[in-house]
Write a protein that binds this DNA or RNA. Structure first.
Lengths: 170, 170
DNA sequence: AGGAGATAATTTAACTTTCAACGAGATGAT
DNA sequence: ATCATCTCGTTGAAAGTTAAATTATCTCCT
């Protein structure tokens, strides 16, 4: 019944997954989990999680290595609250600091310190190697293009539908 | 520097990601995160997380809807400790119960209750619909086959390398 | 039989993430 | 100007996760 299900006296006709669909879904989800786990483990040696790496990487790419909290949260795909908490930790580690925003006095910038920059520069090669060895290395260029196309499409169809999360907006 | 990096006076020659590799990786990782998030949100209406769903689904598929804790942890891809904790919650909810294993007195079976079975049977159609609308619906059958092949390959190459997790074993 | 060592599962404690609430400042309508 | 309303970012508590220690049992070797 994982997602397969068979017979069905269910009221509405549920369209269960056929074997091909099932295979695609399970292969994707299982391999992805294990791969992400491996990536995270690879990074653990450097005292980083994938999420923290992402935050630092995004910050290091920003002009002046500096971004408003909300913007950083968005591009690094973490919640505002999580970023806030994480920033406290990274600040303690000396990797980032907060800076007031002159134009909006509610706001703050997350700024990467020199030490933080050195940390991410040091971590990057290992992470890139990890991404290669866990992912890219096993893909032909055709595979890479196919994946990019497919996942871009998936993302573009994302949003809305029977989610009911953010009714605050709009 | 997300994973791109450009110049390089780094000692060892780091092979950064070229644009095609970069695109494949980012598209995959970003769409995946958002998709998983959406799936989780869709399930939240039913008071379930994807991980809990997976545990219950696996259990409901097992003979007698009954599995040893370790085995369940493995196939549902959660740690033993996490499963233990989660079981306590689900037990309180009346979805599962524990049963001693007669042949190995250290062991326990996780057993799905009738109530738990009803819960998963009720949740399944919505989850399948969610998987369709977030994932399968946007894939041709060729895409589905391609993904299955690629992710099976990725998974088969997983394991070992510069991970150093489980030194307790062997 | 005895004992070293492996294994099953749980527990504890530390840590992380989420959720809801909050304070403070911006914004826009009247 | 005043008010309601929205947004920025933080906070505290609750919930979830992880890692390491723990208990009990099993296995296998001598």
């Amino acid at each position: 019944m994982a997602t397969g299900g068979k017979s069905s006296k269910t009221s509405a006709e549920v369209r269960w997954l056929n074997p091909r669909e099932m295979k695609a879904w399970r292969s994707y989800i299982i391999a992805s989990r294990r791969m992400l786990e491996a990536l995270d483990n690879d990074l653990a040696g450097l005292e980083l999680t994938l999420a923290d790496y992402e935050v630092l990487a995004q910050l290091s790419d920003a002009p002046d290595r500096k971004l408003r909290m909300t913007e950083l949260a968005e591009i690094a795909m973490v919640s505002k609250s999580r970023l806030s908490h994480r920033m406290k930790v990274m600040e303690k580690a000396g990797w980032v600091r907060r800076e007031e925003c002159p134009s909006d006095r509610r706001g703050y910038f997350a700024v990467m310190t020199e030490k933080g920059f050195k940390a991410i520069v040091k971590a990057a090669p290992a992470h890139v190697a990890s991404v290669r060895s866990r992912f890219l290395e096993h893909l032909t260029t055709a595979d890479q293009d196919a994946l990019a196309k497919i996942f871009d499409r998936l993302q573009s169809h994302l949003r809305g539908q029977f989610i009911e999360e953010d009714r605050s907006k709009k």
